[in-house]
């Protein structure tokens, strides 16, 4: 019964993705092209699936592989990052992303304090869907505990009280993590440099002074947009304007 209610809550909002059944056949065809070593043809097929509006970690991962085998390191890292957002714990995605980053020219910054690194890892461990489902489940559990309380009056058992405390605590933590993740998801725009190298300038104009050089595969944060220029920020705080075509949002 609980599963039914929970399923109802989820199914209330989840609609069937149109075209999913047609997309997987094209995806499988692209896989066969990849297996035959026709990486560029496979890449084009994967891109067709993506153009149909499909979002799938496996699809993004395979597309990253196709880009990698085609010699496009920046694009490969871009699609691995997109895949990781959907499946943050997939070992294949993490391995290939780490491998691609060891080859790229710009080094990633040194990790910060252990506490913050661990916090960031915990925050990004579950997916947004998992956090949302957990939120729904905990809320439902509290609702049912509340119904028990209404039915039995105010003489409740210690088990009921423990259930309320545990569910409330978990719901609080879940809400904080979910809020932080949603804030990051909807407010922070990250991108990957897809040109072999790009000069960031002091202003949104070709005549402005170059301030630093970034190479393909480097992840940047987008702070502002102005026409065809983006104000990017590196993890070490460096900021500069880059042409929009030289990066692609994750």
């Amino acid at each position: 019964m609980l599963a039914g209610v929970f399923g109802l809550l989820l199914s209330f909002c989840a609609g069937a993705d149109a075209g999913a059944s047609e997309a997987f056949s094209m995806y499988n065809h692209a896989n066969s092209l990849y297996a035959a070593g026709e990486y560029q043809a496979a890449r084009d097929r994967y891109l067709e699936v993506v153009a149909g509006g499909m979002e799938d970690a496996w699809l993004f991962y395979n597309l990253g592989n196709a880009w990698f085998k085609s010699g496009e390191l920046g694009k490969a890292i871009l699609w691995y990052e997109r895949a990781r957002r959907l499946e943050p714990r997939d070992p294949d995605i993490l391995h290939n992303l780490r491998f691609a980053k060891t080859i790229k020219r710009d080094r990633d910054p040194e990790p910060g304090h252990r506490f913050y690194t661990a916090m960031a890892r915990v925050l990004h461990h579950p997916t947004l869907d998992e956090l949302s489902a957990a939120f729904s489940a905990l809320l439902l559990a509290l609702f049912l505990l509340g119904l028990v309380w209404l039915r039995r009056g105010r003489q409740m058992t210690s088990g009921w009280l423990a259930g309320v405390i545990v569910c409330s605590s978990l719901l609080l933590v879940n809400t904080v993590v979910l809020s932080a993740r949603m804030y990051h998801h909807y407010t922070v725009t990250e991108a990957i440099v897809i040109y072999p190298q790009a000069r960031a300038r002091s202003g949104p104009d070709e005549r402005q002074t170059p301030v630093f050089l970034v190479h393909e595969g480097t992840k940047v944060r987008i702070d502002r947009q102005q026409e065809d220029w983006l104000l990017i920020r590196l993890p070490n705080g460096l900021r500069g304007w880059l042409e929009r075509r030289k990066v692609e949002e994750i």
Partner: peptide
């Protein structure tokens, strides 16, 4: 080298994107 591609699939479309659906929050 990088690891090999994921195998063939019978369906695609990983995430429900619950957080992006107004109906989900209405249900909550």
């Amino acid at each position: 080298d990088i690891r090999y591609i994921k195998p063939d699939a019978h369906r695609l479309g990983g995430g429900l994107r619950l957080h992006a659906r107004p109906g989900f929050w209405l249900a909550q």
